[in-house]
Design a protein around this nucleic acid. Sequence first.
RNA 1: GCGGAUAUGGUGAAGUGGUUAUCAUCUGAGGUUUCCAACCUUAUGUCGUGGGUUCGACUCCCGCUAUCCGCACCA
Length: 557
Amino acid sequence: MSDVENSRLERLSGMLKRRGIILPAFEIHGGSKGLYDFGPVGGRIRNRVNQTWIDHWTSLGNITEISCPTVTPYEVLEASGHVGEFSDFMTDCNACGEASRADTLLEDFHSNPDALSKTDLQKLLVESKPNCPACGACDWSDISAQNLMFNTTIGAGKSGRQGFLRPETAQGMFTSFQSLYRHNRERLPFGAIQVGKGYRNEISPRQGMIRLREFNMAELEYFIDPEVDINHDFSKWNEISFTLIPDGGEEISKSLSEAVESGLIRHSTVGYFIGMTYDFLIKVGINPDKLRFRQHESDEMAHYALDCWDAEIFGSYGWVECVGIAHRGCYDLQAHEDATGKTLRARREFKEPKTIEIDGWTIEGSVAGPAFRALAGAVKEAIESLPLETQFPCEVIIASGEKVMVNPEHVKRNQKTEVISGEWFIPHVVEPAFGIDRIIWHVLDHAFDEIEKGDERYTVLRLNQEIASIDYCVFPLFEKDGMGEIARQLNNKICSKSGVISLYDSSGSIGRRYARADEIGVPVCITVDHQTLEDNTVTLRSRDSGEQKRVNIESLY
RNA sequence: GCGGAUAUGGUGAAGUGGUUAUCAUCUGAGGUUUCCAACCUUAUGUCGUGGGUUCGACUCCCGCUAUCCGCACCA
């Protein structure tokens, strides 16, 4: 980073802190790495970005918003693969207090302890009794998962259950699949969105808002039928050339429809969400020249993912990934199904019901049941797969490998016609995941404009009206001759409107007050002056053009 | 986690082993001013934290915490 960019970054960070947009959290206690406050000005910016994001997706019409707990039981994140991927299993030496990685301790007792589950590691630890590398004792605490996820205990004392603060919002949407499916009248495609906090106990949070331990995420899980081609309408992006970096290739510029048709973007829904993501980022104020989409390389992508694109935004820290759009296949729902035995599926009706003629053998329950007892189920399965020509008595090999003698009285002819109208399948998921803090950082970075005014550097935060923290400032030119009262009254009127915030400021010269408002990006300032006293008009001054126009005060009520 | 640098009012900077720590700016109050950081008066506010050396530490030494820059991992 050059000195020029560096000092701009310092001025930007200084301004964000000074004006209460983004500041280190808990600073009077010394602060804590990777934790930031959105201050009195930033809090509303975050809220408005979140709301804009929600509105953006719900406008599709088949998206519902949910909100799941951040405290998540161990089993959920074990099923999703996060426990294995995000954490190490640790155990403490009760003699000296030194913490050790369980898999490292057990290397001499197992060929690949890294691959063991927590339960197996615990068992192996108890059996093999390794000594503490620090003090030589052998007195280990129970194994706990630690590291990139925040550990917590749900419930008090020993009866408590192990849990984590969620590292992403996605899992709650997968575990709620059945409810979502019903709500959407059991019809795909549909999506669920969630905006909320996620937590990762990063080893080394760095670069301000870019890597946080507690962060704001916004995720959409869009459930689709892998066998149905969705015809997305890409025409609204025909005029836009997207900057794309394909897996292993050079940066190119292409229209979205071209990139999807050529197969560069491997799934049209991924392509559609790239377009939606582009629109959202532009809406909140990202400079389109500083935005590109990069395809994950095969070895970077999670093994189950079919395609993954990151939206990267250029700012003071270089190119930073702020959104990930991943085709996750059926991985997540499958994982929770496997772990719980619950059905997380959607139904697909066949165009033509399938008719299956069955003509073979099955068991005579009243005879075979008492005869085979516990094996009866397996015997039934084996017999139903036998050809019609089979002669009884007959020796049958059942699933467990056991041989059983089946006599004619155990069986009967099975002749029927089954009509199957459809099937159950695990939907595929396309997931756009947004790092809200990273996006807000870049919005601020792109909006932060320094212009020369005389010899001075003048700061303007060119935020879009949609996400500006303060909508209006109201100034009396002077606080005398009744101008102060009129301005206060106007300010109160504007604040009382739902969703609108106005700030009253009477201190300092009028120029200073405009400058203060510009620095935090207030789009419009309203000034009450002498003329107001005569004809009830005020001036509206625009942040970006500096232009003023007079309007009647009543038109602002 | 490893290596390097840093920590002084809200912000940005000076400075010293010696008893009221300096400046600019910001902020508050008052005045002045007919619209883009004007001016005058006045006030508030600082040595990150814990220990050590010392008669005395903001200053020297050691932990800790935080920040910034490299290395490894990620939204």
